[in-house]
Design a protein around this nucleic acid. Sequence first.
DNA 1: TTTTGATCATCG
DNA 2: CGATGATCAAAA
Length: 225
Amino acid sequence: MNKYAKRPASIPSLLNNAEQLAGLSLRELAEMQAIATPPNLRRDKGWIGQLLEQALGASAGSKPEQDFPELGVELKTIPVDSRGKPLETTFVSVAPLTGISGLRWQDSNVRNKLSCVLWIPIIGERSLAPGNRMIGQPLLWQPSTEQEHLLRQDWEEIMELISLGQVQNISARHGQVLQLRPKAANSRALTEAIGDQGQAIMTLPRGFYLKTQFTAALLARHFML
DNA sequence: TTTTGATCATCG
DNA sequence: CGATGATCAAAA
């Protein structure tokens, strides 16, 4: 493993590359990549994700698609404590707020992104400096039948409310495993949505997030193997 | 401005 | 002390 990471040609090779990173601290990986380690994440909230993307040869930059489109794999880092429990909900994708009539689960961004995910746990409490956090054992995951059913139910319920102009009445409590929450740099960043009379309104952009209970269960299965 | 990567700050 | 809602930075 060096700083000139190649795009893996296959899923097994990607998984193998990820396994080679397990046990390293983020500082060690950053040094191998010749990337500076920030003292905290206040101004570098995407640092961990970008570090792993580069190390594994993921597509550069921001795209609404998967990180490894030719493999159909999405890369996600997930902060966990020393017991492997997620510290945060996991962002999945921005929620479409307009032009959603006829949009089906099968064609949704949420399903597309979650169809195959390479999870990389990052072990370390918030108090731990980013460079001292450790890379955990990766997990290649595809939703089970039950998991996909839960995701679909939540997604369909939330999308129906959005299409009915109820965006502003949806709280993060809707849904069992998937939640809709604001996703914006600040409260002034607005996007178009449907109002309760069917009119166009401006509102905060929203994102779909996986609840910690869901990701915890998903990781627990792996850690117990 | 919107997408990516997320963490921060506060409340019950 | 976990969940919810708010917010941060970079790239395109």
